Simulated scan of single mutants.
Amino acid sequence: MARDLDSAQRFYGAVLGWDFRPTHLGDGVVVAFRDGAPVAGIGALTGNRGVPVVWTPYFAVEDADATAARVRERGATMAVGPLAFGTGRAALAADPAGAVFGFWHGEAVPDWSMGRGSAPAWLELRTRDAFAAAIFYGEVLDWDSERPGSCTVSYEHDHVVLRHGHDTVARISGGALEEAPDPEVRPRWHVHFHVPDLESAIDAATGLGARAASPVQTSVTSRWMVLSDPEGALFTVVTPQDGNP
């Protein structure tokens, strides 16, 4: 959600190589595409200036009302909705540790994918207790169930890993601090976007008014940096290390 939809499109188009198309959700929402594949949605914030500009993951559900009831039953907070929105119903919630997420019941953009191609590289939840978070989201969103198409959950190297088929779509990591002043440390969902060249993306972003919110970080498989866009929304750009797919 952005305050200036046109400026957001110019920024992310230049930094991440996205182009944008209108949707059946109205004039205030566009879908970003990379190489013909849908990547993300950007909507226009209106009214309350106190609402932060932020990237939020939305999870598909089969029944928005039932999902909202499960959120409340498990000690979490329903912030907005479920409300009718375009061809479906959407809602915003905060999990028991305070991380904000959304869910959606209805028609989705065709061929939307996670964890492969031009889609977001992956989602990461950094929270206090990864095991407790996995139980909460599994119960609320019906992960690791017998329902066809359900995501599978596994525990690997002190992380919880969520997969859909062969694609890794999310990871849950523990150790975040609820009252930490730094939003990088508080429980929240982090959105990671693929870029072909990390330094080029960082230069483009900072040249258009973004700021670095972390140093460049590395692992065996990838390199990444957290950026804050000109309106303050945090996102991560990530590229594979040489020799990795």
Results as ranks from 00 to 15, higher is better:
68 A>F: 07
28 G>A: 07
176 A>Y: 13
235 F>E: 03
149 G>P: 04
164 H>C: 14
94 A>L: 11
24 H>N: 15
158 D>M: 11
9 Q>A: 12
148 P>H: 07
111 D>E: 08
164 H>L: 15
188 R>W: 15
223 R>P: 05
126 R>Q: 09
151 C>I: 06
97 A>N: 04
157 H>W: 12
126 R>H: 15
112 W>A: 15
117 G>V: 09
208 L>T: 13
178 E>D: 12
6 D>Q: 06
162 L>R: 05
222 S>V: 06
237 V>I: 12
11 F>G: 00
91 A>Q: 05
63 D>N: 11
179 E>S: 15
174 G>R: 03
137 Y>I: 00
41 G>M: 10
135 I>E: 12
147 R>F: 15
158 D>N: 13
71 V>C: 09
66 A>I: 04
44 A>H: 13
218 T>A: 13
208 L>E: 02
113 S>T: 14
134 A>N: 00
196 P>W: 05
89 R>T: 08
51 V>H: 11
36 G>Y: 10
145 S>N: 11
70 R>T: 08
244 N>M: 11
119 A>I: 00
144 D>G: 02
192 H>V: 02
216 V>R: 09
164 H>R: 15
165 G>K: 09
39 V>C: 04
38 P>L: 04
222 S>D: 15
11 F>W: 08
41 G>Y: 11
56 T>I: 12
11 F>P: 01
212 A>S: 14
123 L>Y: 15
37 A>H: 10
147 R>S: 15
127 T>R: 03
82 P>I: 06
212 A>C: 03
85 F>L: 09
230 P>N: 06
236 T>M: 11
163 R>Y: 09
140 V>S: 00
135 I>N: 08
93 A>C: 14
205 A>Y: 13
233 A>S: 13
163 R>Q: 15
114 M>Y: 08
94 A>M: 10
35 D>N: 03
189 W>Y: 00
111 D>K: 03
186 R>K: 12
115 G>V: 01
152 T>H: 08
162 L>T: 03
105 H>W: 07
18 W>Q: 06
